[in-house]
Design a binder for these strands. Structure first.
Lengths: 187, 187
DNA sequence: GATAGTTTTTGACATAGGTCAAAAACGGGG
DNA sequence: CCCCGTTTTTGACCTATGTCAAAAACTATC
């Protein structure tokens, strides 16, 4: 279990006043396994942070579900595209496990950026970190074999492999479920 | 030709004082075709903005050059990973054309963030935009065919196709040069 | 602990796109 | 306008991974 506020303290200096404001605009809640936090077509109006549990973001392409990301304890879980651009999301977000999360509304976050400019820094650093991760995924996708990508994930997030169904992981890695199953059989 | 300062004005409100400070820390320079701006192993200590020209970032994997990005007029061209993490870059940056660019040193940028908190916003928005672009590339890489990816690039950056050598574009799209050549032959 | 639903595995087969090698086309300096 | 180096194209062949389908292994519910 990692709370949002712990995460923030690790990223920037949080003054008492800021702390209070964050507490005020943050809402904690629990969603049951199988519940949806966002449906494709809706606009994503909250920044979500997974304190404990597991969510997945996916969208439908050619009648197939494509898992775009998996967010586990201590990670943000928002349809970034929709949240940033303010357009309708093509992604849906579903709870794979019963999940405890903290949420901040878009408008509240913008006001926070305005009233506490130091929080722009959080937004920036956070996005920078996510950018770097994504870059790694892209390079892997282009130039690593399915097996190498699986091994990379095994190193980085071994827990994920135990908690998320195989099909979602395969889709996340950009390989078919059958291929992933065969890779796994080699061990 | 798009100058950095034009770009910034489009992104945030730039006060006179800020404008002056940016002018002070920004250095414009020209690099000839074939020159290097960064070599793998060095740390990337400047934020670069291409005002006019074309740069590419690439790295070597299994004796092969992999083009990671191409930056044309009006785009930033920095080894983000190295610039953000302060580690040595695995990327090299080379000028494909004679290029005019503006540079800001890392330390100057950090001071700018500190003294003009509103510039954190630029950093954040800029990274957000780059994040979204990258996300699109990743999805395309996983679930689109080579041809579809090429067509996507043709729509988004037709100019690039005329200015960058085929091999770099192929590598950027994550396909072999031969395959790209064959795709192109179909038109 | 039998039933039904879901998830994973296995098998057979198809194909997009990779690799290697050679030929052709292009481009710029003399 | 010719030559040399580079870039692109073409051809032949190979392989990783996808697809479809069925069997097997789980999981949860009554």
């Amino acid at each position: 279990m990692t709370t949002l506020i712990e995460y923030l303290h690790r990223t920037i200096a949080v003054s008492d006043r800021l702390q209070q404001e964050i507490d005020r605009i943050t809402r904690q809640r629990t969603v049951e396994k199988g519940q949806y936090l966002l449906r494709a077509g809706e606009r994503c109006d909250v920044l979500r942070f997974v304190e404990q549990g597991l969510l997945r973001g996916y969208y439908i392409e050619q009648e197939k579900e494509i898992t775009n990301w998996l967010a586990i304890d201590g990670e943000f879980a928002t349809s970034f595209y929709s949240f940033i651009t303010r357009e309708a999301s093509t992604e849906s977000i579903e709870a794979i496990e019963t999940t405890v999360l903290s949420e901040i509304k878009y408008a509240d976050l913008q006001a926070l950026y305005r009233d506490f400019p130091e929080t722009e820094r959080i937004g920036r650093i956070l996005t920078e970190n996510y950018y770097i991760k994504l870059e790694g995924r892209l390079l892997a996708s282009h130039f690593k074999t399915a097996k190498e990508r699986y091994e990379q994930l095994m190193d980085a997030h071994p827990i994920l492999l135990q908690r998320a169904p195989l099909g979602y992981i395969a889709s996340y890695l950009g390989i078919s479920q059958e291929t992933l199953s065969r890779i796994r059989a080699q061990y």
